Amino acid sequence: MTQRIGLFFTVSLLRLLAALPYSVCARVGMSLGALLYRIPSRRRSVVQTNLRLCFPDQSEAHRHALGQAHFSHVIRSYLERGVQWYGCAGKLNDLVELESAIELGNTEAGPTIFLGFHFVAIEAGCMFYSIKHPVASLYSKMSNPLLEQLAKRQRARFGTEMIPRNGSVRQALRTLKSGTPLMLAADMDFGLRDSVFVPFFNVAACTLTSVSRLAALSGARVVPFTTSVLPGYRGYKLKIFDALAGYPCGDEKADALRMNAFLEQQVRAMPEQYYWVHRRFKHRPEGEAPVY
């Protein structure tokens, strides 16, 4: 019952936020995030630990400012789920700028894996793409089944085929071979299974090898993309890069290292927008102490 009441208020709030002007919603989110960063919390501690590990040469004051800016973007992104999940297609379409190095919707290019990363605006970019072209997406299960159903339903509202991350590999392969691109993100610590330790900002990070294995099995090209928050409360920019040449290379560890190196380059361009609230270094190589 408690979960159902919580879901009712969540949906009501998101619908209300969808009705507000985008800039109002974004400004409220930024201010609320800055306020919440002042309150000691487990998530703030995770952010501070991640920034200390990844930017050891920066001053404590600089990392504090970066952490506050990040918290503002994270809370803003939660509020912006309103327009992403309940706003009309036209409103979302107007908020996203597209820059693509490849021709989109070209089924003759063969199977395509769109490799995303957990920047705060990833949801907006994925949903914008689904308005334009057929696509499938891997999703992770949530601890709250009602919230998971809500997220799955709203993310699929423009026709996205939702595939559980721990579901059938065959389903993902069928989707790719049918000509429908598959969107996924592999930059989180999902545990030691099907993962290797490779550097991320010179810190050993437990990194999934699923991207290179799925690409090898399907013959798919791997096309990275990022979605960034534009300044001046103008919306977002979806940037789609060229396919990674020679990927996969036949060495899963080398592929994981290359993926992390590409991600690190993007993070350096907009460090406040990467999801530092996640415990990216949750699992440690044998013999190393926990960091959180």
Score class of each variant (00 low, 15 high):
I5A: 12
G6A: 13
L7P: 06
T10G: 06
S12W: 11
L17K: 05
P21I: 02
P21T: 02
Y22I: 07
V24H: 13
V28P: 14
G29P: 13
I39D: 03
P40Y: 15
S41D: 02
R42P: 00
R43H: 11
R44G: 15
Q48T: 13
N50M: 07
L51C: 03
R52H: 14
R52A: 15
C54G: 06
C54K: 08
D57N: 15
G67I: 12
H70L: 06
H70G: 01
H73E: 12
V74I: 14
I75R: 04
S77A: 14
Y78C: 11
Y78L: 13
L79F: 10
V83A: 03
V83I: 15
W85R: 06
Y86Q: 01
C88D: 15
A89E: 13
L92H: 04
D94Q: 14
A101F: 10
I102L: 10
E103K: 13
N106W: 04
E108T: 11
E108M: 09
P111V: 03
G116Q: 02
A121F: 06
A121H: 05
G125E: 06
C126K: 07
C126E: 08
Y129P: 06
I131E: 14
I131H: 11
K132P: 04
A136D: 09
S140Q: 15
M142N: 13
M142V: 08
S143H: 15
L146Q: 10
E148Q: 15
A151S: 10
K152G: 06
Q154I: 02
E161P: 02
M162C: 05
I163S: 02
N166E: 13
S168A: 09
V169D: 03
V169Y: 01
L173W: 00
R174N: 12
R174H: 05
R174L: 12
T175W: 00
S178C: 05
G179E: 02
G179Y: 00
M183R: 03
L184A: 05
A185Y: 11
A186H: 02
M188T: 11
D189P: 00
G191V: 07
L192Y: 06
D194Q: 12
F201M: 09
F201C: 08
V203E: 12
V203K: 09
A204S: 12
A205C: 10
T207K: 07
T207H: 06
T209R: 08
S210G: 15
V211L: 08
L217C: 04
R221S: 14
V222C: 09
P224N: 08
P231V: 02
R234C: 08
L238N: 05
L238K: 03
L238R: 03
L244Y: 02
C249H: 01
E252M: 08
E252R: 11
K253N: 09
A256T: 10
R258Q: 11
N260L: 07
F262V: 01
F262S: 02
V267P: 10
V267E: 06
M270P: 10
P271G: 03
Y274K: 00
H278V: 02
R280G: 03
K282E: 07
E288K: 09
A289V: 12
Y292I: 12
